[in-house]
């Protein structure tokens, strides 16, 4: 197997691992509210994944200035979103259950 092919498959494995990490930290199976720490973890994992795609799939590792520019712009965008969520947030660290959804309004009776 050519070394570049092996490297791409390794990158894909890392991206799959990070996707799994994102699923766990984002608590995909339950309607919880995430604490600020988990929001930060999701932000860091997201930017790491984006950097891998830019560096390896798009081969920007051969142009470090462009890689830094694109990664920095994405990181800034994700950071603003994560901070805005964290500022308007309930828990600080853990994960808490979502409040029950309100029942649908009863239909008008005759």
């Amino acid at each position: 197997m050519p070394p570049e092919t092996r490297r791409l498959i390794l990158t894909w494995g890392l991206l799959m691992g990070l996707t799994l990490a994102l699923g766990v930290s984002g608590d995909v199976a339950r309607p919880t509210r995430l604490g600020a720490l988990w929001l930060a973890v999701i932000g860091v994992v997201t930017v790491t994944k984006a950097r891998f795609v830019l560096a390896r799939y798009l081969r920007l590792e051969t142009a470090p200035a462009f890689l830094s520019g694109f990664t920095g712009s994405l990181a800034a965008t994700v950071a603003v979103i994560v901070v805005s969520f964290a500022l308007l947030h309930q828990p600080l660290i853990g994960k808490v259950a979502a409040p029950p959804r309100p029942a649908a309004a009863p239909s008008a009776m005759k």
């Binding site: 930290s25 984002g26 995430l34 997201t46």
Partner: peptide, 17 residues
Amino acid sequence: HMVDLIWVVVFPCLYLL
């Protein structure tokens, strides 16, 4: 890869955060 990259950022912002 750009389409890929956009989803990598959109998915956590809309679904997870």
